[in-house]
Amino acid sequence: MKNGLYSVHLHMTDGVQGRDSSVLVLRDGLLIGGGPHYWSIGAYTVGEGTWKGYLSTNQHTPFSDPFVRPLFAGQEVTSGFSGTFSGDEAEVFGTVLVGTRSMSFQATLKWLADA
């Protein structure tokens, strides 16, 4: 994984309905980012074409639509992930524990710029 600004497109798996798009800055094993409703901070390690890490996420702004329910119920959660990368793109699979419920997700990242 090269340092820089990445777009992130995430969707929940295992029958859970949910998705999000955001940005992350990856720099020397640390990552920080967010979007219109959530912020995230974490760390990662890199292998030969693989990477893994963790990400703590919390909601900073409520949704304006009263019918939208936040996946994480407005609480801070930590996710573990692992995946692969090549060139300017990466893919990860991960799990987040929300209370006593485990939820899986898949995300794709695309490098946008040096940061």
Rank of each mutant, 00 (worst) to 15 (best):
M1T: 14
M1H: 05
K2C: 03
G4M: 08
S7N: 13
L10F: 04
H11I: 05
M12D: 06
T13H: 02
G15Y: 07
G18Y: 13
R19W: 10
S22Q: 10
V23G: 13
L24N: 06
L24E: 06
V25F: 11
L26K: 15
L30R: 15
L31C: 12
L31A: 13
I32R: 09
G35F: 12
P36M: 06
W39P: 00
S40T: 05
I41N: 05
I41V: 13
I41C: 00
I41A: 13
G42L: 05
G42S: 08
Y44P: 10
T45V: 11
V46E: 15
E48W: 01
E48I: 09
E48T: 15
G49K: 01
T50C: 04
T50H: 12
L55R: 04
T57M: 07
N58K: 03
Q59C: 03
F63P: 06
F63K: 08
F63V: 06
F63Q: 05
S64V: 13
S64W: 03
V68K: 09
V68Y: 13
R69W: 02
F72H: 05
F72Q: 03
G74H: 06
Q75F: 00
Q75T: 13
S79I: 02
G80R: 08
G80V: 09
F81Y: 15
S82R: 03
T84I: 12
T84A: 10
S86E: 14
G87R: 11
D88H: 10
A90D: 01
A90R: 01
E91K: 11
E91Q: 12
V92P: 00
F93M: 09
G94N: 03
T95W: 01
G99T: 06
T100R: 12
R101K: 15
R101M: 11
R101Y: 10
M103F: 06
M103Y: 03
S104T: 14
F105M: 09
F105Q: 04
F105K: 02
Q106N: 12
A107C: 06
L109S: 03
L109W: 05
L112C: 04
L112Y: 03
D114W: 02
A115Y: 10
A115D: 12
